[in-house]
């Protein structure tokens, strides 16, 4: 079998072996491959000298540059914080009104705020901040805890029913489940509340039920929502006479809310976001409401 022959096409000798018809040429390794090999090894060698690389028992070579990924990212972070500083310091130190008056700062707020909102708030309130079922619309002018950037910033800082020490607390009791009201009463007060924002639902046929509902309301709900049902921002009780609803204003949802209560939850952002980021977000959200015609 060991017969060397010359391949007619390449002019190269074979190695003299054959495996089921397959032969090999004895072509030397092309010079390009060797050069390429040397280049990549030189690159590796250089990197080994410069950077941490080789383990040595209980330690490793640190590299002559004396840097590592932790130092580098800390440096990058410091650099980027410094680059942002003119904006963030201004946001942190100036009053809300001053910032709103400054078109440049507001451009910053709209840019940075959009990303901050998207990565932190949009999960509940949506990318467009228009909310969803169970999560309030932030672009309207209906605010449970008061609108305006100061109030919004405070809500962001402490949250609502959050673990923060100063959290805003709002508890809508479970009137039905905890047997404070009977089923008929729940239904009556739901009809009554519905009629506040939809006067057309008040007809001669249900006048009696509405009257009963009004009495239940005054006895049970008015303490928080007020006798006129316009709500209270001190306890986050919504205005029930307008047509803005967090959970829904149809009869079925109203019955559910009154029966089972509501404990809306807004996380605290005190630790996760810096004071300037919280302020930026408050301004961003406030700005969404302003732009709305």
């Amino acid at each position: 079998m060991d017969v060397e022959e010359v391949d007619p096409i390449s002019g190269r000798k074979t190695t003299g072996h054959e495996w089921n018809g397959i032969k090999e040429l004895d072509t030397p390794v092309p010079r390009g491959v060797l050069i390429f090999l040397i280049v990549t090894h030189l690159f590796a060698l250089l990197w080994w000298v410069l950077m941490p690389t080789w383990p040595l028992g209980t330690t490793y070579t640190k590299g002559v540059l004396g840097t590592d990924q932790w130092q580098r990212v800390e440096k990058d972070m410091a650099h980027s914080q410094a680059a942002r500083a003119p904006w963030t310091t201004a946001i942190e130190t100036m009053s809300f009104d001053e910032i709103i008056a400054d078109e440049n700062l507001m451009a910053f707020v709209r840019g940075s705020g959009r990303q901050l909102f998207g990565d932190n708030c949009a999960a509940c309130h949506g990318m467009d901040a228009r909310g969803a079922a169970n999560y309030p619309d932030l672009t309207d002018d209906d605010w449970l805890w008061g609108g305006g950037p100061e109030n919004i910033a405070e809500t962001l800082r402490v949250g609502i029913n959050s673990p923060h020490g100063e959290t805003r607390v709002a508890q809508m009791p479970a009137f039905g489940r905890d047997q404070m009201l009977e089923r008929a009463q729940v239904r009556q007060v739901a009809l009554y509340v519905r009629s506040l924002s939809h006067p057309e639902t008040s007809t001669a046929d249900n006048a009696e039920a509405l009257q009963a509902g009004r009495e239940v309301f005054l006895a049970n709900c008015a303490a928080c929502h007020g006798e006129d049902a316009t709500g209270s921002r001190d306890v986050g009780a919504p205005n029930l006479t307008d047509d803005y609803w967090v959970y829904g204003g149809d009869i079925q949802t109203l019955v559910t809310s009154i029966h089972g209560g509501r404990q809306g939850h807004m996380p605290t952002w005190d630790e996760r976001l810096s004071p300037s980021e919280i302020k930026t977000l408050a301004l961003y959200v406030n700005d969404l409401g302003v732009e709305k015609p």
């Binding site: 972070m77 914080q81 810096s274």
Partner: peptide
């Protein structure tokens, strides 16, 4: 020991 702006989480939160 980091320059990140986040605060240490309060264990009670």
């Amino acid at each position: 020991g980091t320059v990140a702006e986040e605060q240490v989480p309060n264990p009670n939160n």
